[in-house]
Amino acid sequence: MGQIVTNTPTDQPISHDRYNDSYIRGILNDHKTIAMVGASPNPVRPSYFAMKYLMDKGFQVIPVNPGHAGKDLLSQTIYSSLTDIKKTVEIVDIFRNSEAAMAITQDAIAIGAKVVWMQIGVRNDEAAALAEKAGLKVVMNRCPKIEYGRLSGEIAWAGVNTRTINNKRPTLAGGFQHRLIGA
């Protein structure tokens, strides 16, 4: 089912079973630097697909993978850990298992990230509570590529149910077949 977006108070705890579209849209509009922990240089892996798509959408994506530290991935230097990154990181995207998410969340808090984002199949409620206590926003069991595609409507070209209802013109980006997720 889709969502009819209403004015949503944000001072109450987030349910991690179901997110409002406005919450996800806010995160993707407000934060443009993503550290992707578990980014794979293998071009058939989902993390590679997600990194490439998010870079196309204007995000700066910093790959983190200790097994490939120092190499380049999509022209970005791979870091060994979050704490090695000297630049500002806003979103920490976790392409690791639920158990590993706790240590990565602790690092995300330590480097001053604003959002901890766990991929589809990754959920760690303890880590989420820790991050929220430190003032970070948390998304679990979601993919930022799919969410961007869903909220922009791009993913609907593949017949996917975006679960949205829209009475506004979609916002076009440059070139053909590129859409923004709107305000």
Binding site: M1, G2, Q3, I4, V5, T6, T8, P9, T10, Q12, P13, I14, S15, R18, N20, D21, S22, Y23, I165
Partner: peptide, 8 residues
């Protein structure tokens, strides 16, 4: 947070 309404 209140949930967005599900359309019928």
């Amino acid at each position: 947070m209140t949930q967005d309404r599900e359309p019928g």
